[in-house]
């Protein structure tokens, strides 16, 4: 199968790779580029563990073909910490015990990030809705909801 070039920005840095036509973005990120923060849980669109942010919108990297991402701005959880300092969402997930096995966590954090970017002070319902495409088999969800609300409060305190 012919290889095709793909070029995009990942967490602020330019990436260029050759992939087989039909390669998913999830496979390209994990197996080619080495960003293993998006997880492959189901490859069916149902678990949300592979969620990434493409041009500001939450998407499932398991159902996105890499070659459709030419020129895109892609963000993953691996790019959130700055200079070894965790992002407020990452901090809140630790503080609220919102991560157990951790498999769902990068997807949850991506879904929460697009929410907080648009709605800095979300209601509980907003959070539930924003995370509704992400499955967690460990926590029972409540700590995750609390973590997102905690991160929102931390952000607004920092801004004040």
């Amino acid at each position: 199968m012919a290889k095709v070039p793909v070029q995009f920005t990942l967490n602020g840095s330019e990436k260029a790779e050759f992939v087989e036509s039909g390669t998913t973005l999830l496979a390209a990120l994990r197996d080619k580029i080495g960003d293993t923060s998006p997880k492959g849980g189901c490859h069916q669109g149902t678990c949300g563990a592979c969620s990434v942010i493409i041009d500001g919108e939450l998407r499932l990297s398991c159902l996105t073909l890499a070659e459709t991402c030419g020129g895109a701005d892609i963000k993953t959880t691996a790019g959130l910490a700055e200079g070894g300092v965790l992002h407020p969402l990452q901090r809140a997930f630790l503080d609220a015990f919102a991560t157990q096995c951790g498999f769902c966590t990068p997807g949850m954090i991506m879904a929460a990030k697009v929410l907080l970017d648009r709605t800095p002070n979300p209601s509980r319902e907003d959070v539930v809705e924003a995370l509704s495409g992400n499955i967690c088999r460990c926590t029972g969800y409540e700590p995750i909801i609390q973590a997102v609300l905690l991160a929102a409060r931390a952000n607004s305190q920092n801004a004040a």
Binding site: G45, E57, L58, R59, L63, A111, E129, G133
Partner: peptide, 9 residues
Amino acid sequence: VGGPAIRNM
């Protein structure tokens, strides 16, 4: 239709 990521696609 679906969750937020599905609706974006």
